[in-house]
Nucleic acid binder design. Structure first.
Length: 987
RNA sequence: GCUCAAGUGGCGGAAUUGGUAGACGCGCUGGAUUCAAAAUCCAGUUCCUCGGAGUGUGGGUUCGAUUCCCACCUUGAGUACCA
């Protein structure tokens, strides 16, 4: 019987589906374990070999946990709203729902064929109204909440309204807009409804406000900070500009500190936590108030170094700072205005790219130092950002390099307030070594003591207090797109109103065009049935809008991260129509025990979802405030591109008038790889230039040649399927693939082959290095694919794919098969296992278990290979050995394991068979092959009984002839003996 | 610039508390089988001058360092004037 993997795999995939083998129960005697993969977006291109890496790892772990007796939740679904489907719709007119549906079908087929143990009964799709109903519902909860800093959690907005009515807002310690004005209870009651609603928006956790947003004209939408990479859009690489727009925002800044602290409680990779810490960007310091001389105005600055206050020699405001126009003296007016204008002209990218140029202008105004009362000049400079802190800094040139550079550039004095610091060349910014000098009451103190003292003094003066700042900005939540969740919002007198939760979902309307309207409104502006009837509580035709009972609906949709910010909770109770998940389900599953996905979501999905979870926790809607205990980032599988080289010439001639002419062009020649590095011109052109008559040569030959032509090689990506494991190119295949190479000449290696150069790059269609799992499954089987993906290297690492290597793991599976069956049938019998058999098995159990718990899947594959090699050599046929071996292997290669398990006579799936118990007694050795080292270098080994003590070992080793040979008569200075480990002779 | 990873044969990688560097697999070489090929099996495969050298480089700690410490180099990722 041969190992017919295609047949076996189809058989068991069908069996698992039919028997719902991997269905998780919401109540069980067993302990729970929740294994989750990051939500995939079903793209049109389908899966390539890199995508399933994380899924295979999580699947192995999920299957392992089932063997360990856990009730495992291992769901899968689709983050099915998103830009690509919409871009496709714009181009083709196809409804995104249709293309999404098709893409999901492809994904599902591909996932099924790899043999994942997903519980598909819990599948969710973010674009499904029964799902986004609850995304809308959570949005409403956010709208109806504010953040109370006193209780340090989100609370219901009705509480806030009550307090406004009883005491005004002056005593309320809330996270809210900076521009909030104080009012009394009486004033509140006197405000009209619109005014009241405007004020409440400044407190709500999701709010509508005019904000400066990242507008991407090419995509016709705003983007969040994390959707912009190097100043251009993450998707498509389009330019992004700043623009003021009225948008929904999420007050994630309220959770900055808790998001930061929460990182300490979860087992996520250190680099990912570090990325989130940087993104949150906490800095501890103080607010200091400076009075402007001869004026009522005050400038508040934020500084992390209040201890350096006696080193201030100027102030710098952002050019956009609101006080600039008011404090500038008439004499400086022209200069300041010029400077502001010049800064405004510079694009965001310019300012980002150009860090070196120092620029600024003096306002003519002076502030008064809070302690010395000395005058300090006020400058403006574009190195100060309007959006961070207060948009103003107290400049301490001796302690901050940017201030230092600015001072040098404008000849501003640089007082030194650090004991023993040399500031002749650069600022002294090392706060750990700081001892303050020339600073009145701070003299002799270190950074910590001085900071504490100065804040206390400032508070006495009423000119400052300790303050913590965060870089984390509120997240823009509106997108001017069609294919996203509609907001459950309509507008009355321009103020947003929530639709009552019982009328959800508000379904996405049909539109004729997916582009913005002619008046520049988002695509939903094209919908003709998109108004809210407050009496019938349904979506009605726009014609009926009367702004009395029928109102216009919100035209924006939610961003991609809305649906993915809470989906892990939905899997716990995926079909609940009354709640986003029942209390019972939430309390049973609680959180994700293992979350696997890419690190590219570090500041997007993984931060927003933590924020939503904390909010839901505050509202008592979920039982834990961090939803994923452990998170692993799988590395990316890179493609191994194949490159052939096209010959290119650059000629330089002088014509009859003495003018230099340069001519260059490609030859119809592809060059095999070994010629690229050692290129011998004469070898190529023995008769140059006679054999280059095919282009320009007649005309050129009459000219004076200045130098030999420069030959270069232009790399061409070749489809990797045209190249074999030895990098040999199928030339005929290439000619069939691309007709332009039909008449090319090929410069071959001496052995007559054409070899391509290999380069490791990201897998992408345009590089023709994409390997499709479908082909691999067909040719080698899913079990081989699964094993090979794991065998490639550590899960977290980036590593190149090379299809050639798969024959190794495939050969292993065949060898495994032959251990159980041959052409006559089953080989396994009831033979008593030998000592060696048991040793191999238990060694394998131990290592396999350790590896799987350390997520070291690559080494466990090696372990299985060693076990099968050993058992084959031992001619093992014992069921007592071969049966447990199948269980060890089944998480990795489930199909072959099920098939052999069945052949051994089992009628139930192997998937819940108990994991074999490790018995250390089988590994006890009676002797040890000691490595004998001289000065730390191993020279030979020696077999000695395990129970020898150090002295016996030393005697035996010293008596050995090779020892004497090594020592050549010298007496060893020292002999190090670690019984059971090593012997090292020094001398 | 700052932060975080990572540098080991021709290639992917292993060495879990400092103790035989290169497990396992690919590739390559030779052999068996075959009319031949595929498949399969067996043997070898870090490097060189066969005595050594050797885990990015240079130091250090140690009887002993891929592993610990210091400095540096390279590559990748994140971040970008954050006061």
């Amino acid at each position: 019987m041969n190992y017919n993997f295609n047949e076996i795999e189809a058989k068991w995939q069908k069996y698992w589906a039919k028997n719902q083998t991997f269905r998780a129960e919401n109540n069980s005697e067993k302990p729970k374990y929740y294994v989750l993969d990051m939500f995939p977006y079903p793209s049109g291109a389908g899966l390539h070999v890199g995508h399933p890496l994380g899924y295979i790892a999580s699947d192995i772990y999920a299957r392992y946990k089932r063997h360990q007796g856990f009730n495992v939740l291992h769901p899968q679904g689709y983050d099915s709203f998103g830009l690509p489907a919409e871009q496709y719709a714009i181009q083709t007119g196809q409804h995104p729902a249709l293309t999404t549906e098709e893409n999901i079908k492809t994904y599902r087929r591909q996932l099924d064929q790899i043999g994942f143990s997903f519980d598909w009964s819990r599948e969710v799709r973010t674009s499904d109204p029964s799902y986004y109903k609850w995304t809308q519902w959570i949005f409403i909860q956010l709208f109806n909440s504010w953040y109370n800093k006193d209780s340090d959690k989100a609370e219901d907005i009705s509480e806030l309204i009550k307090r406004f009515a009883s005491e005004g807002n002056s005593k309320i310690n809330a996270v809210c807009d900076d521009t909030i004005q104080t009012f009394s209870a009486e004033e509140w009651k006197a405000f009209d409804t619109i005014k009241q609603q405007q004020i409440l928006l400044q407190y709500r956790l999701t709010y509508l406000a005019e904000t400066e947003v990242n507008w991407c004209p090419a995509l016709g939408t705003v983007l969040a900070n994390d959707e912009i990479v190097n100043g251009v859009s993450e998707r498509g690489g389009h330019p992004v500009i700043r623009k003021k727009m009225t948008q929904w925002s999420m007050r994630i800044s309220a959770y900055a500190e808790r998001l930061l602290q929460g990182l300490e409680t979860i087992d996520w990779t250190e680099s990912l936590k570090e990325t989130q810490r940087n993104w949150i960007g906490k800095s501890v310091g103080a607010h200091v108030e400076f009075r402007i001389q001869n004026s009522e105005f005050r400038i508040t600055v934020f500084t992390t170094r209040p201890d350096t206050i006696f080193g201030v020699s100027f102030m710098t405001l952002a050019p956009e700072h609101e006080l600039v126009s008011q404090i500038t003296t008439p004499a400086q007016k022209a200069e300041v205005e010029n400077y502001i204008e010049a800064t405004a002209k510079r694009s965001e990218r310019d300012r980002m790219a150009d860090v070196k140029t120092i620029s600024g202008a003096f306002t003519g105004a002076y502030v008064e130092h809070p302690f010395t009362k000395e005058p300090i000049p006020v400058w403006i400079g574009d190195y100060v950002l309007a959006g961070y802190g207060t948009g103003a800094v107290m400049s301490v040139p001796c302690g901050d390099q940017r201030d230092y550079d600015f001072a040098k550039h404008f000849n501003i004095p640089i007082p030194n307030i650090f004991q023993g610091a040399d500031i002749s060349k650069e600022a002294f910014a090392d706060k750990d070594k700081t001892i303050i000098a020339n600073s009145d009451f701070l003299n002799g103190l270190n950074y910590k003591e001085a900071t504490k003292k100065v804040i206390a003094e400032l508070e006495k003066l009423g000119q400052g207090q300790g303050k913590t700042n965060y870089r984390l900005r509120d997240a823009v939540f509106s997108r001017q797109r069609y294919w996203g969740e509609p907001f459950p919002v309509y507008y009355v007198d321009g103020m947003p109103q929530m639709i009552d939760a019982k009328h959800l979902p508000i379904k996405l309307p049909e539109v004729e065009k997916y582009l913005p309207t002619e008046t520049g409104e988002p695509p939903l502006g094209n919908a003709t049935v998109w108004a809210w009837d407050t009496t019938k509580n349904e979506v009605v035709s726009n014609d009926l809008i009367d702004n009395k009972t029928i109102h216009p609906l919100e035209l924006n949709t939610m961003p991609g991260w809305a649906g993915s910010s809470w989906y892990f909770n939905r899997y716990m109770d995926a079909h609940n129509e009354n709640e986003f998940a029942s209390k019972e389900a939430l309390n049973y599953w609680k959180d994700v025990d293992l979350y696997i996905g890419g690190s590219e979501h570090a500041t997007g999905h993984l931060l927003y979802s933590r924020f939503w979870q904390k909010f839901l926790f505050d509202k008592g809607l979920v039982p834990v405030d961090e939803y994923a205990k452990k998170l692993i980032n799988q590395g990316m599988i890179l493609g191994t591109s194949a490159l052939a080289y096209n010959l290119r010439f650059d000629f330089k001639f002088r014509d009859s008038t003495g003018e230099i002419i340069e001519i260059s062009g490609f030859e119809n020649i592809l060059v095999s790889k070994s010629y690229i590095e050692n290129f011998d011109f004469d070898f190529w052109h023995p008769n140059y230039p006679d054999n280059y008559r095919n282009w320009h040569v007649e005309e050129i030959m009459s000219y004076e040649q200045i130098r030999k032509p420069i030959v270069s090689f232009h790399p061409i990506h070749i489809d990797v399927s045209l190249v074999n494991a030895s990098d040999e190119l199928d030339i005929q295949g290439l000619k069939n693939w691309r007709s332009e190479y039909k008449d090319f000449k090929f410069k071959l290696e001496e052995d007559g082959t054409f070899k391509v150069k290999r380069e490791v790059e990201k897998m992408s269609k345009s590089k023709y290095n994409v390997v499709n799992p479908d082909q691999i499954c067909e040719q080698y089987g899913a079990d081989s694919l699964r094993l090979y993906e794991m065998f490639l290297g550590p899960l977290e690492q980036y590593k190149p794919w090379n299809t050639a290597g798969i024959t190794g793991v495939h050969g292993f599976l065949k060898k495994l098969w032959r251990l159980y069956v041959d052409e006559n049938g089953l080989l396994v019998n009831d033979a008593e296992p030998t000592k060696d058999n048991l040793k191999t098995l238990h060694k394998t159990i131990k290592k396999a278990q350790e590896d799987i718990e350390n997520f070291s899947f690559n080494t466990s594959v090696s372990t299985f290979m060693i076990a099968v090699n050993e058992l084959t050599a031992q001619k093992c046929t014992s069921k007592d050995i071969l049966e447990p071996l199948l269980i060890l292997l089944s998480p990795y290669a489930p199909h072959i394991a099920e098939e052999l398990w069945e052949k051994l006579g089992h009628t139930e799936s192997i998937s819940t068979a108990p994991f074999p118990k490790f018995d250390a007694s089988h590994l006890v050795e009676s002797s040890k092959n000691y490595p004998i080292s001289f000065n730390g270098k191993m020279k030979f080994t020696m077999e000695l009984p395990m129970d020898f003590n150090a002295q016996q070992i030393e005697e035996a080793v010293m008596a050995h002839e090779k020892t004497q040979e090594q020592l050549q008569g010298r007496t060893p200075k020292k002999v190090i003996i670690v019984p059971g480990k090593i012997v090292n002779i020094v001398g």
